[in-house]
Nucleic acid binder design. Structure first.
Length: 103
DNA sequence: TTAATGACCTATC
DNA sequence: CGATAGGCCATTA
């Protein structure tokens, strides 16, 4: 199992209506320092539609600008459709929708 | 193998 | 609070 595949598995394991941070995915992937690699892995996104990259946000719950595959608004909309609420700052409500293993 | 890049995170000014 | 610098790991050329 390569690091990338592990990251993909983790990202795909993110339940609907919740969001995960790069650091969290990296942590579950094996190393908490893989945050950058996680972003890189999602960057290549070999399986769009299968990998909910829109559920991955930064630790601050903010969506990466470079992400904007269809506009930052797009990602927000997708998450909103899943039931994820947003703060007035335009960030995801990490305190409530941050994905956790034990919910 | 070396050098360079990155959808990050943390610390400091 | 906003901006800058450094560090971490893996991938790619």
């Amino acid at each position: 199992m390569n690091t990338f595949e592990r990251i993909y598995e983790v990202v795909k394991s993110i339940p609907k209506g919740k969001v995960a941070t790069y650091g969290l995915v990296a942590l579950l992937a094996g190393n908490p320092r893989l945050a950058r690699v996680v972003g890189y892995a999602l960057h290549v996104n070999p399986q769009p539609g299968v990998i909910p990259c829109h559920r991955v946000v930064t630790k601050n719950g903010e969506v990466s600008k470079s992400f904007a595959f269809g506009g930052e608004n797009m990602q927000r909309t997708l998450l909103a459709e899943e039931g994820v609420e947003f703060l007035e700052d335009g960030r995801v409500d990490m305190s409530r929708f941050l994905w956790r293993e034990n919910t």
